[in-house]
Amino acid sequence: MTYLELDNLTKHFEISDGLFGKKRVVKAVDGVSLSIEKGEILGLVGESGCGKSTLSRLIMQLLPPTSGSVVLEDEWLANLPPALIRERRPDFQMIFQDPNASLNPRMTVYSTLVESISARHPRVSDNAADAQEAVSELMRTVGLDPRYMRKYPHEFSGGQRQRIAIARALGTEPKLVIADEPVSALDVSIQSQILNLLRKLSRELELTMIFISHDLSVVRYIADRIAVMDEGKIVEVGEANAVFNNPQHEYTQTLLKAIPQIRV
């Protein structure tokens, strides 16, 4: 059964050149249809400006679509009233590229994670021991030592910070996680750790994930299927190895050729 279904999802922005300039329409997302199974990792690949981020904001219900629909577990989401969308928010979580920017520097790991857990369990902080236990478990899930829960983000390394961001995303028990370039800002050696962690979580928690990246080699490794996006459209979808080894669309071939090769 299809878990998340996007049907002909479209977002057009109207922009004008200057105050009296001509109006132009930018087709940021142009008729995207995709379906994702439960527990699947879908890799979404494309260059800056291809519409990846707009698409993820449409799915997250942060932007109303111009037309088309988003269906999660047989529920139509695109035209819900704002109050209901707010209620659904914990179902969708995002992991961003730069944990330095996405974590609140004034909040300890504990308060960041408690806030996230309380989206589902509003009374979690009533009992300090319970709250601590919930936070500890979350930290262990992402491979962090619970002893550090009272520390602030700046006291952690880059890779550990990204683990905190992942823990925060998992705290609301989301149905769908969108990871937007989660390893691009990290060193190669740390990248592998985070990729391993995301894959482990998707297997163990049956997490459904959209993994956005411009780097096909990373996506090939982590994704079950890959969707390639160019100028607002999905130009190719397929099983990860098939797309990687036998790209059909010209644009996918260009992307593949751009990956630096070790040639000596």
Partner: peptide, 12 residues
């Protein structure tokens, strides 16, 4: 640890 040269399905 370069992801590009690693086999899919195994841990990096």
């Amino acid at each position: 640890s370069i992801p590009a040269i690693q086999e899919k399905g195994k841990d990096l």
